[in-house]
Nucleic acid binder design. Structure first.
Lengths: 205, 205
DNA sequence: TCGTGTCTTTACCAAATGGTAAAAATTGCC
DNA sequence: GGCAATTTTTACCATTTGGTAAAGACACGA
């Protein structure tokens, strides 16, 4: 049995755990935690429900595993922000990376959004342990850039919030965006251009 | 029975329907559609479950009623945008109204966000019928202001998206914001100042 | 090829949940 | 007060859902 932190997982274990997690990401991001059912996940993964419970202790463990994996991916673009780079280019690069993630990983974005929307019941510890230190660190970096006169002075915390909000919006509110833009194929490009303009004007010293 | 579009609703009917809708707003915004149960709504409303089903045909009807009512409130700040006002002041006023709504009506914001996040299964018709025409109209107004030279030229559609995203973020991602700002009581004021700066710099011609 | 450990299926179950029927209580009008 | 209409409760029900037990299929090294 694959319980606990055993030795090397077999090929089959690796393959099936990945199948399950991918299916679960689909289902959880589409219906939320309570809206998702093990049966849906099982069908999407091409496995039987009891077989899923052979690999995971329960619905909650699948969700938590997904959230844990997501945290790393999610924080990565902010980790990459280089204190020694050109301030404005670093910020604009960060915006672009987040926007690309909204396009390339919409399921992850929605999974995260759904979790936070409901008060982060399963993620609060991660927010405090992983996100908060990183957030504080990068706020300090940006603050130093502003003190140096390399960027216009604004509250770095709200600056980061506005970057998150404007980029993730295109994944989380996709249903609305698609209606209002009538499936404009240039949506992503238009957003990139708009956001680059906005943050350039905001931050140019 | 209060079914159908009958005559005047009695005092009791008005009171209880409002109790139910208020309780349902609490529960739906906290747990999402599928995560909410009629029992939770009943307890929150101080009524029995069958009694709830005396006033509404079912869980879905409660949700849809809530969504319908919400649409009006939600669109109002954009309706108020006055084509004859001062362009920059009109936009900044709109931002401020949306930000105030995020503070004063967080449940409504989350209910809306949850619905869109899941693909707007019960709201797509409303988006097309109500939101889209208003959106197009106001995009034209803003576009005319830009053509006139009263505002810097950017894509009005993405401008509106960024206003929605940045303001609603404080309601929808409140769990995250509270962690990162450590319950800063000046959060709302700080956000208001930051957003006013951002959109002023973006749009000043 | 045999046997051991890994994986999968079949057949269930208890709890939760949306919903109903009908009796009982209450309200409001004459 | 009396009575019809409205409102509320009690007692259910069918389905869904997360989860389990145990038997069966399978892989693979000796």
């Amino acid at each position: 049995m694959p319980d606990g932190a055993d030795k090397k997982p077999s090929r089959i274990q690796q393959r099936n755990r990945r199948l399950i997690l991918d299916a679960a990401l689909d289902v959880f991001s589409k219906h939320g935690y309570r809206g998702a059912t093990l049966d849906q996940i099982a069908v999407a993964a091409g496995l039987s429900k009891p077989n899923i419970l052979y690999y995971f202790d329960g619905k909650e463990e699948i969700h938590v595993t997904l959230l844990n994996q997501l945290m790393e991916t999610w924080l990565d673009p902010l980790v990459t922000l280089d204190p020694d780079g050109d301030p404005l280019q670093e910020i604009l690069g960060y915006v672009q990376r987040k926007l690309d993630m909204a396009r390339d990983l919409p399921r992850e974005s929605r999974l995260f959004a759904g979790e936070i929307l409901q008060g982060a019941p399963r993620m609060a510890p991660h927010l405090v342990a992983d996100l908060q230190p990183l957030f504080d660190e990068k706020c300090a970096v940006i603050g130093a850039w502003m003190d140096k006169g390399a960027l216009a002075t604004v509250d770095p915390r709200h600056l980061i919030f506005s970057i998150w909000a404007t980029t993730q919006h295109y994944a989380d509110f996709d249903a609305q965006v698609q209606v209002l833009l009538r499936d404009d194929p240039e949506c992503h490009g238009g957003a990139a251009k708009y956001l680059a303009t906005m943050f350039t004007k905001l931050l140019s010293p």
